[in-house]
């Protein structure tokens, strides 16, 4: 069943494609809220030039912000990679090539998920050296 346009009927079987179809929509709703909050905090409430190491150190003192960013990381990566998987399914017709491309994407997903998660969990501010509040002009 071609479901990538989103214009077709709802999938009714119980396989991975159905899970993926619902997952894209549910993660999409959650991401809508998370991303808009993230955009407003990082681009309107604060200027990018003030989102320095010090800014992150104060922000990540609260573990809830780490959880917020981890949700953002996990949902956006899985949502985006699932979308890319559908694009690959649409344009890569050779079964062999598709297998290798999708395998590479799975590895890429794992690497970026781990890199982001490790960064979020292991971040400990350098005591006494937080750097400037904003970048100097």
């Amino acid at each position: 069943m071609r479901i990538s346009t989103g214009l077709g009927p709802r999938p009714t079987n119980s396989g991975f494609e159905t899970f993926s179809w619902y997952f894209l929509r549910i993660s999409g709703i959650v991401l809508l809220v998370l991303v808009i909050v993230h955009l407003v905090i990082m681009h309107a409430a604060n200027d990018v030039s003030c989102t320095t190491y010090q800014f992150v150190a104060f922000r990540y003192a609260n573990p809830l912000w780490r959880l917020f960013d981890w949700l953002l990381l996990t949902l956006s990566l899985t949502h985006g990679m699932n979308g890319l998987r559908i694009v690959v399914d649409d344009y890569v017709h050779s079964v062999t090539v598709r297998f290798f491309v999708l395998s590479a994407l799975a590895v890429l997903l794992l690497i970026f998920f781990m890199l982001g998660t490790i960064t979020l969990i292991t971040f400990q501010p350098v005591v006494g050296n937080l750097g400037p509040q904003c970048l100097p002009r």
Binding site: T52, Y53, L77, G80, L84, F112, G116, V126, N129, G131
Partner: peptide, 25 residues
């Protein structure tokens, strides 16, 4: 998605301390 990859890498610079991270910013 392309930006997300870049963004995960630039945030990972946090592990290298304030000088390196602020270079990215």
């Amino acid at each position: 998605l392309l930006f997300l990859f870049i963004h995960i890498v630039d945030i990972s610079l946090l592990g290298f301390g304030p000088q390196v991270y602020n270079e990215g910013i």
